Amino acid sequence: MTTTVGLSVLVKDTGESARTLQHWSDLGILKPVTSTHKQGRGYHREFPAAPPWHGERTWALFASHLNRIRIPLGDIKLIIDSLRPFTTDTAALGEPPIGWQKHLQTHSIGQALSGRLVVLLIGIDENKEVRCAEILGAPSAEAIKEVEAVFPKGTISDKEDFTIIKDIDASIPWEFIGEFASNYMLNLEKVFAPLTGAQS
């Protein structure tokens, strides 16, 4: 079990340049192991990467996808800082009494790392407060395709039709639309594909 990785693994995961990832480390978006951070020439940064949360590999992938949709670096840091406590605090304490599999299901990031299809809506208000809401959850993308095959667009009509989609949760929190000037949607299954092996 690998507990730390070098910059080259993050480069491979994200497709970002080494210099970009170093810059993100300098800004605090990524958090290298303290003893390897800013040590000068000849020292290479190492990043926490222990399963099941995969440490900074998770956040490098998350930051890379936010960067691709041109979210400012300051906002990327805000978003990741708001989500990071759900993963790092529990990983540092060791395996929870309920076990990792059940514990991962308590948060959208954990669900996605377990292979579940999760679409996350992220909003930042004028006070730089970050709010996230899961707007779609399904066992997999294949489950969504199965529903589309049975019910073409617009044909789900009554409660009985919904029995086939009992494992799929979908909702749009309308307060996001009215309250936030900027909203971003991420398909976490695709974001974390290099960690989970999901086909993207």
Score class of each variant (00 low, 15 high):
residue 69 I to N: 02
residue 74 G to L: 10
residue 81 D to L: 04
residue 162 F to H: 08
residue 125 D to K: 02
residue 113 L to V: 01
residue 79 I to P: 04
residue 165 I to M: 15
residue 111 Q to W: 06
residue 113 L to I: 03
residue 149 A to T: 07
residue 157 S to Y: 04
residue 152 P to C: 04
residue 167 D to E: 13
residue 142 E to C: 02
residue 107 H to D: 15
residue 149 A to N: 06
residue 139 P to N: 09
residue 94 G to I: 00
residue 154 G to R: 09
residue 145 K to H: 11
residue 74 G to H: 01
residue 160 E to M: 08
residue 126 E to L: 10
residue 160 E to H: 11
residue 123 G to Y: 06
residue 88 T to Y: 08
residue 110 G to I: 06
residue 82 S to N: 08
residue 77 K to L: 09
residue 137 G to D: 09
residue 125 D to F: 05
residue 162 F to C: 14
residue 109 I to V: 15
residue 131 R to S: 14
residue 141 A to E: 15
residue 77 K to P: 00
residue 94 G to L: 03
residue 128 K to F: 13
residue 108 S to W: 08
residue 161 D to C: 13
residue 143 A to S: 08
residue 94 G to R: 04
residue 106 T to W: 03
residue 81 D to F: 06
residue 131 R to V: 10
residue 126 E to G: 02
residue 134 E to L: 06
residue 78 L to D: 12
residue 135 I to E: 03
residue 116 R to Y: 09
residue 147 V to Y: 07
residue 141 A to H: 10
residue 68 R to W: 07
residue 148 E to K: 09
residue 85 P to S: 02
residue 85 P to N: 05
residue 96 P to W: 01
residue 115 G to D: 08
residue 118 V to H: 05
residue 129 E to D: 12
residue 75 D to N: 11
residue 91 A to W: 06
residue 80 I to T: 05
residue 134 E to Y: 00
residue 142 E to Y: 01
residue 73 L to T: 10
residue 89 D to S: 14
